[in-house]
Write a protein that binds this DNA or RNA. Structure first.
Lengths: 251, 251
DNA sequence: CGCATGTTTGACGATACTCAATGTGTGTGG
DNA sequence: CCACACACATTGAGTATCGTCAAACATGCG
């Protein structure tokens, strides 16, 4: 179905250190004291870099860990009965994936890295133990899952109600916002996913996405050159997106 | 936007008792010992019956409780920028709603009852405390959230990849399965939601849903009479749904 | 440098939406 | 209890948006 890929778990090579990690404010925006963070550190393993196309975990694989992205980007997807994939999310540094595997004991979706990526491997059974002892950590996990639910439901709305144009505009705006929060430019960034993957995620044909990029560029909303994108008129893009401004805004 | 409705929290009238509740196997399929269940009982309040159209909670309302449905049915939905609603789920006895409010501190969606409904009101702060002390309860909450994520992602797939026919077939099959698990007939049941709500949920126009019901009936797949439905050929319906059989099967 | 993969662009057509009219059920008040 | 009104549901006709098919073009990797 896809290219060759190194299945299986990310190979742990060293202890990471949350208290020196620049992403801890995203990944653990909780008031954990230093002792707590040290305890968390002891269960987390940093992976060696995964190369583009490698699997973090496969659909149906037995659930063991959740993963925090340190660098790079990841897509998650489920495979349909006919063998085609449906991308359910793109993930960037500081975000957690694998949480949907808790219920059934196996990952209901696969996670594949879009570019060279490193992650933290967090064994769930150990995390669960700590969650019992550290209320703030427990609440943080629940907040993260809760947010995933909200985000997925926003996607339901997008797929159900929005036009192709609104979908792509919304997609770009949400990416922009996520980069902004990470301290990157909210107007110039690199799309680590292919047009095909964007189309798949948005429930569109690749040709439609391509045409929309062209149209947005003609209308002066964006400037695209391959995977590099420059949002030249964010306000206009908002108008095309059909989004309420400032719903998921975090300063 | 809608009919008159009694906003606000469900009025608690009495203590419920999980250990005598016939739904506890669904709502809490955990091996909680009796002491644990008693402790859970002390924080749960059973609401008096809510009438059709009443709100369990509104979008944007401050988050305080999650709710377990005891009898009846509930829809959750978000309201778009243009003021139209997008239904994100239908819920039946033994299921939990309100979990998406944990992250932001306010419910990102609204919940409205579709018929006369009673629920258990579970104050989250109390539940969270208990979760710290009762590992099984903690894991159960996470499993529930995890399952909600999986289910929402299945809906993404449906909205993104499936034809109108496949969507409705899938919808009926999933309802069938949920009723089966609850001990009801998997072939004959009552649709507590309107055609409009089905259409909205499935990302279709109401006319399309109506036409499909007619077509399915002509083809001998189902027998419909208003809200009553009889699935006369479940196997055929499966073929029309584009679903893998036995993915979320629980005996 | 050449093949493979990914992207753009065009022409055409199908699925599902919109508009509109008719039919059916449900609840309310006379 | 019936009649009316209102919401809900069905059915038909026409159409638009977006998908499919096809070909040219770009990009990147070995």
């Amino acid at each position: 179905m896809d290219d060759s890929s190194n299945s299986g778990k990310a190979r742990p090579i060293q202890q990471s250190h949350c208290n020196t990690c620049s992403l801890s404010a995203l990944c653990l925006p909780v008031s954990l004291n230093l002792t707590d963070i040290d305890r968390l550190d002891t269960i987390i393993n940093k992976s060696q870099p995964l190369k583009k196309g490698e699997l973090l975990f496969d659909q149906g694989q037995s659930f063991g860990s959740i993963f925090a992205i340190r660098a790079g980007s990841v897509k998650t997807y489920t495979v349909t009965a006919e063998g085609e994939e449906q991308i359910t999310g793109f993930y960037f540094p500081g975000e957690l994936i694998g949480l949907s595997g808790i219920d059934s004991g196996q990952y209901p979706n696969a996670a594949r890295v879009l570019e060279t990526t490193t992650v933290c491997n967090i064994p769930f059974s150990r995390l669960d133990e700590l969650a019992g002892e550290m209320p703030e950590l427990r609440r943080q996990i629940m907040r993260t899952m809760s947010r995933e639910i909200s985000d997925d439901q926003q996607m339901l709305l997008l797929l159900s109600k929005k036009t192709a144009e609104q979908r792509l505009a919304t997609f770009l705006i949400r990416l922009s916002e996520r980069f902004r929060i990470r301290g990157y430019s909210k107007t110039r960034f690199r799309l680590s996913m292919s047009r095909n993957e964007i189309a798949n995620y948005l429930g569109l044909a690749i040709e439609t996405v391509s045409r929309l990029f062209t149209r947005f560029q003609k209308n002066g909303l964006i400037q695209v050159e391959g995977k590099e994108i420059d949002i030249t008129d964010l306000a206009q893009l908002y108008l095309h997106s059909g989004e309420c401004p400032n719903l998921h805004q975090t300063p």
